[in-house]
Design a protein around this nucleic acid. Sequence first.
DNA 1: CTGCGTGCAAAATGTTTGCAATGTG
DNA 2: CACATTGCAAACATTTTGCACGCAG
Lengths: 147, 147
Amino acid sequence: MSTETRRLIEQRLREAGLKVTPQRYAVLDYLWRHRTHPTADEIEAAVNCRFPCASRATVYNTLHALREAGLVQEIYVRGGVTRYDIRLEPHHHFICRRCGRIEDVAADRVRVETKGMELNDHEIEGLEVVVHGLCAECRQEEEDGVR
Amino acid sequence: MSTETRRLIEQRLREAGLKVTPQRYAVLDYLWRHRTHPTADEIEAAVNCRFPCASRATVYNTLHALREAGLVQEIYVRGGVTRYDIRLEPHHHFICRRCGRIEDVAADRVRVETKGMELNDHEIEGLEVVVHGLCAECRQEEEDGVR
DNA sequence: CTGCGTGCAAAATGTTTGCAATGTG
DNA sequence: CACATTGCAAACATTTTGCACGCAG
């Protein structure tokens, strides 16, 4: 249901202590519906697709606010472009070295065990695993010699 | 021994199929001696400290070549600045959320186990763990209320 | 001698900032 | 109504590109 989703998104914003603005709604809604790890640029374009709604600066503002609130996760990838991902359950990422595609990896498919980190007196708050490799498609193409 | 190290670095370059140039030597040597995960900028400054040697473009060229050859590792961090790290043994990284310091974490201190990734027909080639948290110093300072 | 590697400066890209105007709670 | 949030455009930082020159193999 559309109004159902709307309410949910607004609730998430309010719970995070953020005022609900059309811009914030639009960005979060877009991330909600597209789990493609878009760049800020893609988000801006998508959000302003039907009619101008959020300026570039606002998109960044919004994304930063959402990051601070823990609602979205930033992913730093090769090329220096930052990508964004809505944060539902904790998960990791798989990045294809050939096409650059980023895919989610459910947290329960990766088990990480750290030993002795605390001995450095460092406080571990989070942990992110990035798996590099070749996605199924690219694997196929390389075999076929598409290069 | 200085000449010893020199020979080692040159050997690493040749083994990687790269021509040995003063610029490449300088960059690799700097990374060899400083395990501080410098930015391209810092590397350029350091390398040109005594006398100009490598232009900006060359530093990037060199770093990319070294990356392709597997001699250095790029680390993508918040802020969009790429940092570089000489690749000796495989290791992971700890990033302090407060001061941004990056610290190496020996690979054997982290055990990662992936299950079912291959089911997607993805070929896993590598795996990188980024630990986020608060380093000892910052932890102290936050407690002391330095903010 | 052949071509890869380099320097330079300009351009492309991605992100941030300052300030007036606006909308939210 | 107070204050947070937005738009705009300009500033900023980082990385890439094109082309002529020079040195390594």
